[in-house]
Structure formats: C-alpha cells, structure tokens
C-alpha cells in the first residue's frame, strides 16, 4: 500500500509525515507525530475528545483524513499553554475541579478556547450548546461550565 507524504503545521511547527490514505488526522497526530493529547472516544464524531482546530475551524480529528492536513494549520491541546505558562482556561479547569478522569479535557479545552475567541461573553446556555458535542461522563458539566464562565469573565476584565 502506498503511503502519502503530508506537509502540515501543528501548533506552529512545520511537520511532515507519511500516512495511509485511510488513516484519520487523529491517527496521524497520535501515531505519526506522537501527539497523544487528542483522544479517540468514539471514532464517529460523537464525543469530541479528539477536537482540534484545522485552519482555526473546530473539528473532530477522527472525521478528518490525515492527508487532508496537507498545507493546513492544526491546533491541538499541546499548543494551548505557552511554555510553562498555562492558558487561563487550563488554570481555571484545575482551580474549579472541572475534570475528574481528564479524558475529555483536551477536547473540551480546545473547543472552549475556540468559543472564547469567537464569543468572549457567552451566556451559560451558549456555553452549554457550544460544548454539546463534547461528552463528559464524570462531572455532569457543572464545574466545567463554571470554569468556562469564570475564565471568560477574567479574560474580559483583563482586556
């Protein structure tokens, strides 16, 4: 089987990899580029644990083929913090105990960061609907919503 050569950018780094045309972007990130932050919870785009941004658009990386990353710019959970400084969202998630097992956390952080970049002042309902594609089985979402609302407030006050 012929593998395809893909040039892409992940979290600002120019990277290349070889992948089978059937492989998903999620597989490519995890198995080819050693970025295991994005998780496979379902493989069918229902759980959001594999959320990444593709040219600033929020996608389920399990529904994108690896070859589609050609020439694109990808953002993953590994790129959210700046060096040793956590993003305010990451800090608030820890502070609010907004994670229990943590498997959904990478996807939820990527999705929430995308939300706040689009809408810095979301209502609780807007946050809940934006995150409706990111399943969490541990928390009942309560502390996640609080962490997001609190981060949004802080970021607004800081800007």
């Amino acid at each position: 089987m012929n593998k395809i050569h893909v040039n892409t950018s992940v979290n600002g780094d120019n990277l290349e990899f070889l992948c089978d045309p059937r492989e998903t972007l999620l597989d490519a990130l995890r198995d080819r580029l050693n970025l295991t932050g994005a998780k496979e919870g379902c493989g069918t785009g229902d759980c959001g644990a594999c959320s990444v941004t593709l040219d600033d658009r929020l996608v389920c990386s399990c529904l994108v083929l690896g070859v589609e990353a050609e020439g694109k710019s990808i953002g993953t959970v590994e790129g959210i913090a700046e060096g040793e400084n956590l993003h305010p969202l990451q800090q608030k998630f820890i502070e609010h105990a907004a994670l229990q097992c943590g498997i959904c956390t990478p996807g939820i952080l990527v999705a929430t960061k995308a939300l706040l970049e689009k809408n810095p002042d979301p209502t609780e309902t807007e946050v809940r609907y934006w995150l409706a594609g990111n399943l969490c089985r541990c928390t009942g979402y309560d502390k996640i919503i609080k962490a997001v609302m609190d981060t949004a407030r802080d970021l607004r006050e800081a800007s």
């Binding site: 995890r30 198995d31 050693n34 970025l35 295991t36 932050g37 994005a38 998780k39 496979e40 993953t76 959970v77 590994e78 959210i80 913090a81 956590l86 990451q90 998630f93 820890i94 994670l99 943590g102 498997i103 956390t105 990478p106 952080l109």
Partner: peptide, 16 residues
Amino acid sequence: GLDKVTGRAKFGADAY
C-alpha cells in the same frame, strides 16, 4: 491537574 490540561497525561491508548 497540569498533566491533564496539557495533554501530557498517559491514558490506556497513549502507550507505544
């Protein structure tokens, strides 16, 4: 916490 918000935490499928 830090491991889990940065994607560094190693879950079952994260071992190679």
